[in-house]
Each structure stands twice: as C-alpha cells, then as structure tokens.
Computed example of a mutant assay.
Amino acid sequence: MGNWGFGNFDNDTAADHLSILTDRLLTEVAEAMSGDPVEIEPDEYWGVAVPCNLELLNRLAELPYVGVSLPAPDLAAEWKRHYLAVWDESIGDLVDSADARETRRAVLVETFDRFIEVARRASTG
C-alpha cells in the first residue's frame, strides 16, 4: 500500500475506496439521466437525488484527494441540458411562487455549472 501522508485519504486503499464511492454516485446519475425523464422530475426521487449526488461530487472534487471519479465535461454539460429541460417542463405549480422557482433553478444551474467546471479541471489534469 502506497502512503503519501498521514491523513485518512493519503494512501492507495483510501483512493480506491473514494473511487468506488464516486463511481457509485456517478452511476446513479448516469442511470437516472438515461432513464425515463419522469424519474428526474422535481417531485420524484431522482429529481432530488441527482443534484444531491452532484453536490457531493463537487465537494469531494474540491478537496485534494486522489480517487475522485468524474465524467467528461461534455457529458456533464449534456446532463445539465437534459435535467433542466425536464425540470422546466415539469416544475409547473410544484413550487408556490415564481420567485421560489427562479431561486431553485438558479441553485440547480450553479450546481451543474460547478460540476462541469470540476469535470473540466479533472480532464485537463
């Protein structure tokens, strides 16, 4: 086992473990995004869980750990386009006010934009 420090994530086994965890988060997103669009509507489980997974991946990618897996930036951008198209089409009256809809959408856009950026950074090394 290779060690490069004394932190919890400073060895090969920890990097492998982190890779397994992030692969799981990505697999869940990929499956949700390639499945029935109804499953990612705002009031459905994956409609909530996809942004949660992206936020977790964003946070992990911002840390100096080895083992975080991310998709190609183009795929991340496609996920953003698809997710927001479904969200825009289905949000309707699920949120009480236009201000609340705009605020929530802005959070989603920011989450996806950060995800695309961390994927871009990861792809360029």
Rank of each mutant, 00 (worst) to 15 (best):
M1C: 02
M1N: 08
N3E: 15
W4N: 06
F6T: 15
G7P: 00
D10E: 15
D10N: 10
N11K: 00
D12N: 06
D12M: 06
D12S: 13
A14R: 04
A14W: 06
D16I: 06
D16K: 14
H17C: 05
I20G: 01
I20E: 13
L21H: 09
L21R: 11
D23W: 00
R24H: 12
R24M: 11
L25S: 11
L25E: 11
L26V: 03
E28F: 06
E28M: 09
E28H: 11
V29P: 06
A30I: 02
E31T: 15
G35K: 04
G35I: 03
D36V: 08
P37A: 07
P37V: 07
V38D: 11
V38G: 00
E39R: 11
I40P: 07
I40C: 06
E41N: 02
E41V: 04
P42E: 05
P42C: 01
E44D: 13
Y45D: 07
W46L: 10
V48R: 10
A49K: 09
A49D: 07
C52H: 13
C52W: 10
N53A: 12
N53V: 00
N58G: 03
N58I: 12
N58K: 01
R59F: 02
L60V: 03
E62H: 08
E62P: 00
L63H: 10
L63M: 15
P64S: 11
P64A: 11
Y65T: 05
Y65D: 05
Y65A: 10
V66P: 03
V66N: 11
V66M: 06
S69Q: 15
S69H: 08
P71L: 07
A72M: 12
A72Y: 03
D74Q: 14
L75F: 01
L75H: 00
L75M: 11
A77L: 07
A77F: 01
E78P: 01
E78L: 09
W79P: 12
K80H: 10
K80I: 01
Y83W: 05
A85N: 13
A85R: 14
A85D: 14
V86A: 02
W87H: 12
E89T: 12
E89C: 04
E89H: 12
S90I: 01
I91Q: 08
G92V: 03
D93Q: 02
D93W: 02
L94I: 04
V95E: 13
D96W: 05
A98Y: 04
D99H: 09
D99N: 10
R101V: 13
E102M: 02
E102K: 07
E102V: 02
T103W: 07
T103Y: 10
T103E: 14
R104N: 08
R104T: 09
R105V: 07
R105S: 08
R105P: 09
L108R: 03
V109N: 08
V109L: 14
V109M: 10
E110C: 04
F112W: 00
F112Q: 08
D113E: 15
R114G: 11
R114S: 14
F115C: 08
E117H: 13
V118M: 06
V118N: 05
A122I: 02
T124P: 00
G125I: 04
